[in-house]
């Protein structure tokens, strides 16, 4: 009964419940680490495995009904963690991490399918957190392609620069590359700056 009333009020005030929140970005930027941190904070469970080897996430992963309470507000999200988008996949890159050739080839094959799946899911998102690696140059074609596609689909975006705990992190270059967005610098691994992140998520949800 309470749920029905909540949904009804949500509709009246134009607020959507169970917002589909996608995590997009290049491989190894920390999408799953961030989604895990949020899911662990609010449901006690993680969404997927993380690894130093790129393309650990090779299928779209979900966590339904993640209720986030922040500064007296409450909102329910469906978390959608996606495989990292890249323009090239070479199984030999995985060999450097000690994987055997057969496993590396299998990983490469699954990674190509994962990228296709990520792109196809773009249309289904209500809002997207674009997770980028704060230690890398943000001006890459893949990043621009991801953001360009979200703009074209009129999907609200939050740009997050992850891994600010690392010495090489340079958040200033993100602000100059994407001057039209507020950039939130976080460390999903250490849980740094998550308060600011949740502020931004609630602001983002209002745009849905």
């Amino acid at each position: 009964m309470f749920d029905i009333l909540k949904k009804f009020l949500g509709k009246i005030f134009g607020r959507k419940n169970n917002i589909k929140l996608g995590f997009y970005g290049p491989p190894n930027a920390g999408k799953t680490s961030l989604a895990n941190r949020i899911c662990k904070d609010w449901t006690g469970e993680e969404i997927g495995l993380v690894s130093k080897i790129p393309h650990e996430t090779r299928t779209v992963q979900f966590k339904e009904k993640v209720e986030i309470k922040h500064k007296g507000k409450e909102m329910t999200f469906k978390m959608v963690d996606t495989p990292g988008i890249a323009t090239k996949i070479d199984y030999e890159d995985f060999l450097k991490f000690g994987l055997k050739k057969k496993i590396a080839k299998k990983r490469a094959k699954e990674a190509t399918q994962g990228i296709i799946e990520s792109i196809r899911w773009l249309d289904d998102m209500d809002a997207v957190v674009v997770v980028l690696d704060a230690t890398e140059n943000p001006y890459s074609q893949v990043n621009l392609t991801i953001i360009g596609n979200l703009i074209a689909r009129k999907i609200p975006i939050l740009v997050v620069a992850n891994k600010i705990d690392l010495k090489k992190a340079n958040i200033e270059q993100f602000s100059s590359t994407f001057p039209e967005y507020d950039i939130v610098g976080i460390s999903a691994k250490e849980g740094t700056n998550m308060e600011e992140f949740y502020d931004a998520i609630f602001k983002l949800a209002k745009k849905v």
Binding site: K88, T112, I115, I116
Partner: peptide
């Protein structure tokens, strides 16, 4: 990118 990935496969 999608079609490229299909070709890589």
């Amino acid at each position: 990118i999608e079609d490229t990935m299909a070709l890589v496969d």
